[in-house]
Amino acid sequence: MAEPSTSSSLFPQTRWTLVHLLNSPDSRTADIALEQLCRAYHRPLYVYARGLGLSRPDAEDLVQSLFARLLAQESFKTLQQQKGRMRSWIVRVFLNEMSHWKQRQLAQKRGGKNGLITLDFSEAERLLTDVALTQSDPARACDLAQAIELWRELLPHLREKYRLRDRQELFTALEPALLGGWPADGPGQKIIAEQIGTTALRLKAHLVRLREQARLHFSDLAREKLDPAISEEEVAHLWGLLTR
């Protein structure tokens, strides 16, 4: 599979490149690649596990157990050979691992080669708090967590682009309405436009353009962080969870 073009992307390193690096004869390079892949997925999977009713320690153990098993079985290399979709593949493997985990009740906790990967779940727990306020479906919560993580990584890059163009004030004005409508408890569009020296009509046009840019870069980032083969339908689903 050819790697997707990243000419319009803010994020040049692709996840598929990391998958290729798992075959590196340099074990350190392969370990680093695997660690980065694990970090891209462990927090949303943790949210998934917590949403299914697992306690914090059990959810941590389950996710650690998953990546330990993937490492031991070199499953990412199998994925590369099959050229499957990484995001859906990892979720499927996670659910399978959870089934086995329930049967053995973590008889061997965090064993094997798992020591090569140290995952921090404190941020995952904070992410769970953001998601749990609005989601009752664990699978949907997992997707929302993934979307939030992508957005949190994308937002500073968008902000920096406007700073480099000396448009920080405009970005600050538009940011609260970027994923939805103008906040009901904030100043109206006309007042905001006057504050930055423009008209409400031009402010609306700026917002439309910024949303288009954000959506484009979100799609790029989803391919680079989650799965280079992710479909537009899946990207639209993740984006829609943010903008509802």
Rank of each mutant, 00 (worst) to 15 (best):
L178E: 06
A49C: 03
L174C: 00
W89D: 00
T17P: 03
C142Q: 12
S8F: 15
R87D: 00
R56I: 08
D166W: 06
A222M: 07
A200C: 15
R202I: 11
G51E: 05
Q135Y: 05
L119P: 01
M1S: 07
D120Q: 09
Q64H: 12
D26L: 12
Q13V: 13
L164S: 00
S5P: 05
A68C: 13
W101V: 14
R209W: 04
T29M: 08
S75D: 09
A107H: 08
A40D: 13
L54N: 06
Q195G: 11
V47R: 01
F76G: 10
A236W: 09
R50P: 05
Q64W: 05
A205I: 08
S75G: 10
V235I: 06
E153M: 03
L242M: 02
Y46F: 13
A200Q: 03
P12C: 02
V63Q: 09
P12A: 09
R92A: 15
T6Q: 14
Y46R: 13
R223F: 04
A59V: 05
S136R: 11
R159N: 08
L70N: 01
F76M: 09
R28C: 09
K77H: 00
Q36S: 12
R211P: 00
A68E: 11
M86G: 13
H217M: 12
A193C: 02
T78D: 15
M98I: 07
R126P: 06
G112F: 03
Q108D: 15
D185H: 02
D137P: 01
L45Q: 02
G84M: 04
R215W: 01
R165N: 15
T78N: 15
T129Q: 15
Q13E: 10
S9M: 15
T199V: 10
Y162F: 12
Q189P: 14
I90D: 07
D227T: 07
E233I: 14
K225P: 04
A145Y: 00
P25W: 02
H157V: 13
C38D: 10
I32S: 14
A124V: 06
E175V: 02
I117W: 06
A184N: 07
Q146R: 15
L201T: 08
A139P: 14
H206V: 08
R15H: 08
P12K: 01
R244P: 04
R211D: 08
I90V: 12
E125F: 05
V91G: 13
L127S: 01
E232D: 10
L62Q: 10
H206S: 14
F67Q: 03
R56P: 08
I90K: 09
K190T: 06
A40V: 02
L62T: 10
P12D: 10
R15W: 11
F171N: 01
R202Q: 07
V63H: 14
S7V: 07
L170D: 03
Q81T: 13
G181H: 06
L62V: 08
E224N: 09
H42Y: 12
R104K: 14
D185W: 00
G181E: 10
L179E: 05
Q13G: 13
I117E: 07
